[in-house]
Amino acid sequence: MVDNKPEGCVSPAAGPLVAGAGRESGSPPSNAQGKEERRMNVSVGKEAPDFEAAAFHAGGFKNVRLSSFRGKWVLLCFYPGDFTFV
């Protein structure tokens, strides 16, 4: 879990933290995203790719990192968008 910074209009989060993408945890997010990270890289029985994302939770904003939940079961749900119908 990443600490809260002063709230601005844009709060960069590192996004995918894919091995070999050249960014270590804690290093500043870069605009130069490698093409490789855009390929699907997930299969059952394999490690879930780590990422850091800006999040809304319990009334506040914070950055959330998948690997901070090691030791717990995680249900990760993607969905097409807020205010959609289903």
Binding site: G45, A48, D50, L66, S67, R70, K72, W73, C77, F78
Partner: peptide, 11 residues
């Protein structure tokens, strides 16, 4: 998309 990830980080 829904992913179940175990305590070791394995999908």
């Amino acid at each position: 998309g829904r992913f179940i990830i175990d305590p070791d980080g394995i999908v």
